[in-house]
Nucleic acid binder design. Structure first.
Lengths: 105, 105
DNA sequence: TTATAATATGAATACATGAACATATGAGTT
DNA sequence: AACTCATATGTTCATGTATTCATATTATAA
């Protein structure tokens, strides 16, 4: 009875909930937003990112790993340099839309 | 020179960064996602929310305050009961899209 | 006015998170 | 091989956050 009431609405399964929350968590930190926003414009090496955004290299690497685990970024190696680029159109679109929305209030 | 490089790309001002990160932070917690997802379907009292999602009333109140501060939800009073509903079309659309995306991978 | 129902608030706690530092790895160079 | 550059990783620390319990507020009913 209570059970029926509870299930009256289309509740979210735990896995979906986890994926969704993780995705938004990636976008909830200013540093990661700045990195993704930069990668939206162009592919960048780790050093370029840390120089451009004035962040410690280790910090950038940690954040990139986080984003890579969620498959929001990908990378390719070129000699000693590793170039990162974004890898999730949907998330990038979401980020751009929300930035645009915030800018125009 | 470095300065010019840094500003080559359209960087985000601090306020925008803050608004965007806060918005996504609201969506980065499973409990808040469940609450917003429920409110997407219908206006609910605090008690309904806590019953429906099996959450402590105080927990629900705390999360609702968080969402209210960001103007993601609004409320109206009816006697002793307070009914909450969503109040940001853009954020709700973003949430729905991301849930849909996660469900269909 | 007292009692009760619905909600909000404050404090405590356990846990997660972001940043920094030091150090390790790995690829190219000499 | 030793050296250097680019990046990754491990650890520590301070801060932030989610949840819970206890209690306060607010509105209605008796």
């Amino acid at each position: 009875m209570d059970q029926i009431r509870k299930e009256d609405y289309h509740s979210l399964d735990e896995e979906t909930l986890f994926i969704v929350s993780q995705t938004f968590k990636a976008l909830s930190d200013p540093t990661r937003i700045r990195i993704l926003h930069l990668l939206f414009e162009k592919e960048c090496s780790v050093t370029e990112i840390s120089d451009c955004l004035e962040l410690k290299q280790s910090n950038v690497s940690h954040q990139l790993r986080f984003l890579k685990n969620l498959r929001l970024v990908k990378y390719r190696r070129e000699g000693k340099t590793i170039y990162y680029s974004h890898d999730d159109e949907h998330v990038m679109k979401t980020l751009q839309q929300t930035i645009h929305h915030a800018l125009h209030e």
